Computed example of a mutant assay.
Amino acid sequence: MATQSTGMQQTTARGMGAVSGWTIFAAIMMMFGGVLAIFEGIAAIAEDDVFVSTRNFTFQWSLTSWGWLHLSLGIVVVLAGIALFSGAMWARVVGIAVAGLNLVANFAWLPWYPFWAITLMVIDGFVIWALCVGPRREPRAV
């Protein structure tokens, strides 16, 4: 099977397996954001003194519950980021879904650590945007 390579984009003769620069960006950012979420989860499970609990917030989970949620989501985000290197469409869809879940979880996490939550929300927003842009389509030579 013939393979053409132009810059950061690699396509096969059938057009399958395209990995564009935005997909690589999204994969790296997902792995980075997932590792940060894992650290966030570990810190919350250990009930570190870094976090401050607020009263009368809508989401009344314990700090340990939030920690397990962020730890498990972080692992899934890292695995989805690794899967993006395959260039498969299912990996893009899973990446968008997992980044969206992580964005919502970090929005709910705002009262405990606002700077960290906003940073991860921005990363997830860029990941969703980069995965929705998709690989650039090259015109086929006849």
Rank of each mutant, 00 (worst) to 15 (best):
F39I: 02
I75Q: 07
V77Y: 13
F57V: 10
L69M: 13
W112P: 00
I28R: 10
T23C: 05
Y113R: 08
M30I: 04
M31R: 01
V127F: 05
L73P: 00
A91P: 05
G33S: 13
W112C: 00
W90F: 09
G15V: 03
M16R: 13
F85H: 08
A44S: 10
W61E: 08
M31Q: 07
M31P: 03
S20H: 06
V127L: 10
T119D: 04
V133N: 07
L131S: 03
G74K: 01
G41E: 02
A99E: 03
W116K: 01
A80G: 04
E138V: 12
A13E: 14
N102G: 09
Q4A: 15
W22E: 06
F126C: 13
V127T: 12
L79Y: 12
W116P: 00
S20F: 10
S53P: 01
L110V: 14
S86Y: 00
G125M: 06
I45C: 06
G17V: 02
A130M: 06
G21F: 08
G81W: 07
E138C: 04
H70T: 04
G15H: 13
W90T: 15
L63S: 10
L79T: 02
A97D: 02
I123M: 12
Q10V: 14
I118Y: 07
Q60V: 10
L101P: 00
